[in-house]
């Protein structure tokens, strides 16, 4: 951060303040909250390689507590965070994506993010075979064995509820109707923690003093 600025670093700090102010203007976060997110980003982006970028392995380490890059859902989260699609999460991408998870973020943004998460092949539809593949991964992760008949029964019930036009794929309108009727499906799209984000609460040892007013 810029808390211990010495003259040689002032130029960098100026850029940092500009970036933080810009990110605050682009997202739901205040300047202080973006600054707090920067501290979190620094921690995550240095956990394996200290290069100021979050690698997929580093996201895996944060979510699963083990370093690996092989998990379908982690891949999807990483893919959506990585706006530039260059294989790493940069700070501005991190702030943009987390903004969607803020308790006060518009419901539309959460619905859209979840849709893109589950639209594995980016066809504009959540296809039945994609959903089945995701359920199989979840069952394997949880060490649950289900017969294919039971699995198909879950799929039938889900698509009877979600797929209004019965074409074995869920479009954006059907998805919106479905999640509005089943709001618990969006529970993991909200991180209550983001509402209490400030250096004072997250990093109590810091005395925060920024030149930019919120």
């Amino acid at each position: 951060g810029c808390f211990e600025c010495r003259p040689p670093r002032l130029q960098n700090c100026g850029n940092r303040f500009e970036e933080i102010a810009r990110l605050a203007s682009e997202t739901i976060f205040t300047v202080n909250e973006v600054e707090a997110l920067y501290e979190l980003f620094k921690k995550l982006s240095s956990s394996i390689i200290d290069d100021g970028l979050i690698q997929k392995e580093e996201l895996h380490l944060a979510l699963f507590k083990t370093p690996s890059d092989e998990n379908l859902f982690l891949n999807r989260v990483f893919y959506l965070f990585d706006e530039k699609k260059n294989g790493v999460i940069e700070f501005d991408e991190f702030v943009h994506a987390l903004s969607v998870f803020h308790p006060n973020a518009p419901m539309e943004e959460k619905i859209d993010f979840a849709f893109r998460l589950y639209d594995l092949r980016q066809t504009g539809f959540i296809e039945r075979k994609e959903v089945k593949a995701m359920v199989i991964v979840i069952l394997m992760e949880s060490d649950i064995t289900l017969s294919d008949d039971l699995l198909e029964a879950i799929m039938d019930r889900t698509f009877a509820d979600a797929d209004a036009d019965k074409d074995d794929r869920i479009n954006t309108e059907e998805w919106k109707d479905f999640v509005l009727r089943n709001p618990n499906l969006l529970k993991n799209m909200t991180l209550p923690y983001l509402k209490d984000l400030s250096l004072a609460t997250v990093f109590p040892s810091f005395t925060f003093n920024t030149r930019i007013e919120d």
């Binding site: 979510l63 699963f64 982690l74 989260v77 993991n188």
Partner: peptide
């Protein structure tokens, strides 16, 4: 809750890979 009674997306949303609150664990 038995997985058999859940809908597919309820099951999927329990994935650890989708639980970003772990990012904030100290």
């Amino acid at each position: 809750v038995s997985p058999v009674t859940m809908n597919a997306f309820e099951l999927i949303s329990t994935s650890q890979g989708l639980n970003l609150s772990s990012l904030f664990e100290k």
